[in-house]
Design a protein around this nucleic acid. Structure first.
Length: 132
DNA sequence: CAATTGACTTGAT
DNA sequence: TATCAAGCCAATT
């Protein structure tokens, strides 16, 4: 019995696993979640987070050019950069990050595990969930 | 259910 | 490097 989870939930689940000092671009997040063209939804999911909600390390998600992509909120953009720099991520004088250096590459099976976990599936054997 | 909305991406100029 | 136009798709209204 898999819990019905929205694409948003999967996005949050994956983003929560990005290690400190590493980043993922929107398109990559979507790709890892098997929606290769869903980059915009990833951005949508990030924007849906309430300001001040840091339960999801949203600052580790940037665009494919290696730049911060927040619109409409200079505060958030500045916060994102500050948080990344605090984790050791270096920015270009043009505001670019070297993706070849900071892009996170999850190990084999890791994403699958994250997805299963988000859905409430057991991690090892197939056991029944308590009926709700 | 149809239309609208986006923290995107890619290719061309 | 900066701009523009198209394509894509889940969540919102």
């Amino acid at each position: 019995m898999t819990k019905p989870v929205s694409f948003n939930e999967l996005i949050y689940a994956l983003v929560r696993h990005i290690p400190s000092g590493k980043v993922l671009n929107y398109g990559r997040v979507a790709e890892l979640l098997e929606v290769p063209q869903g980059a915009r939804e990833v951005g949508w999911a990030m924007s849906a987070l309430k300001y001040g909600d840091h339960s999801v390390p949203w600052h580790r998600v940037i665009n494919a050019q290696g730049r911060i992509s927040i619109k409409g909120s200079p505060e958030s953009a500045a916060e994102q950069r500050a948080r990344l720099e605090a984790e050791g991520v270096e920015f270009d004088e043009k505001g670019y990050i070297d993706l070849s250096r900071y892009l996170w590459t999850p190990g084999w099976g890791v994403v699958d595990m994250i997805i299963r976990q988000a859905r409430g599936e057991s991690l090892e054997t197939d056991n029944d969930e308590p009926s709700g």
